Simulated assay, not measured.
Amino acid sequence: MATIVLGCILGSVVAGSILRALVPQHHLSEESRSALKLGTGMVATLSALVLGLLVSSAKSNFDALNAGLRETGARIITLDRLLAHYGAEAGEARRLLKDVVEATIERVWPEEASGTQPRQMGASIGALSKLMDQIDRLPVEGVQERAFQSQTLAMSTQLTLSFWQLAERTQTALPFRVLVILVFWLCILFAEVGLFAPRNLTVAVVVALSALSTSAAIYLILEMNLPLTGAVKVSSGPLRAAAAQLGK
């Protein structure tokens, strides 16, 4: 997508340069330039505001998921410790919890998987439902044991919610119409550059670098807005650290 944006921006520069040779010279007078700069100044302000808001939103989304993964890791360890209270009777439940964590790591970070086929996120959530059934079947004696079981079930429910949120964030995407409008504004700005800028190597290099920088900003927005896919991804460290603590 960022490559398409770069092509549109550079194409608008070329279109502006071609238009310069076609329009009458009095249309390119200082008075005309002043009027055009007034309009494009407003477009530039709007573009900068929208671009800044999108970067801020994408960064917030990225940071929120990063924090959510750390919280999920803490919940995983806490649930494992709660299950350890039951002793050997909860051994199967603890093994299932570890399988869920490892399956999630393989699904979200397949490049870090140890040669295994990545499984779907839905399979991990389904396994958590089985884990809750196993916890519900654990033997309890007395009111205190029942309260402890309720606490364990509550923690497993919170963990299931965390995994659902993780699955939902893989479906989040930047609204396409917002991106189209932003690119349209940028094309207007760069078309004006092609219309009025002199034709020399220095201008060409600066315009090319400016177009590349703008496209790179949009690339970062798109990547950080989907923090579980692409080149810019959240770290698997919190879940891996939690998996290393399971069963101990």
Rank of each mutant, 00 (worst) to 15 (best):
R107H: 14
V108A: 04
W109S: 14
P110C: 09
E111L: 08
E112D: 13
A113D: 08
S114T: 15
T116Q: 10
T116L: 14
Q117A: 12
P118G: 05
P118N: 07
P118E: 06
R119M: 07
R119Y: 00
Q120G: 12
Q120S: 15
M121P: 06
M121W: 01
A123Q: 14
S124V: 03
I125F: 11
G126C: 12
A127Q: 09
L128A: 07
L128G: 10
S129Q: 08
S129R: 10
K130W: 10
K130E: 14
L131Y: 02
M132H: 09
M132L: 10
Q134F: 11
Q134V: 09
Q134K: 10
I135A: 00
R137V: 02
R137M: 12
L138D: 06
L138Y: 13
P139F: 06
V140A: 09
V140Y: 01
G142K: 01
V143R: 11
E145I: 00
E145Q: 15
R146C: 01
A147C: 02
A147N: 09
S150H: 07
S150T: 10
Q151P: 07
Q151H: 04
T152H: 06
A154V: 02
A154G: 08
M155D: 01
M155K: 13
M155Y: 09
S156G: 07
S156L: 02
S156K: 01
Q158K: 15
L159S: 02
L161V: 12
S162R: 03
S162V: 01
F163V: 11
W164M: 07
L166D: 10
A167H: 13
A167F: 03
E168M: 13
Q171W: 01
T172Y: 04
T172K: 03
A173C: 09
L174Y: 07
L174S: 06
L174H: 12
P175I: 09
P175C: 11
F176H: 12
F176G: 14
R177N: 11
R177H: 12
V178I: 12
L182P: 02
L182D: 05
L182N: 10
L182G: 04
V183R: 06
W185A: 03
L186Y: 04
C187I: 01
A191K: 06
G194N: 07
G194I: 04
G194K: 04
L195W: 11
F196Y: 14
P198H: 06
P198N: 10
P198G: 09
P198V: 11
L201P: 01
L201D: 14
T202Q: 09
V203F: 05
V203D: 06
V203T: 15
V205I: 13
V205A: 02
V205P: 03
V206P: 00
V206E: 10
V207T: 07
L209I: 04
S210A: 09
A211T: 03
L212E: 04
T214G: 05
S215D: 02
S215Y: 00
S215H: 04
A216P: 00
A216H: 08
I218C: 06
Y219D: 15
Y219S: 15
L220V: 12
I221K: 04
I221Q: 03
L222K: 11
E223Q: 12
M224W: 05
N225C: 11
N225K: 08
L226A: 15
P227L: 09
L228S: 10
L228C: 05
L228W: 02
T229I: 05
T229G: 06
G230M: 14
V232R: 07
S235W: 05
S236V: 06
G237I: 15
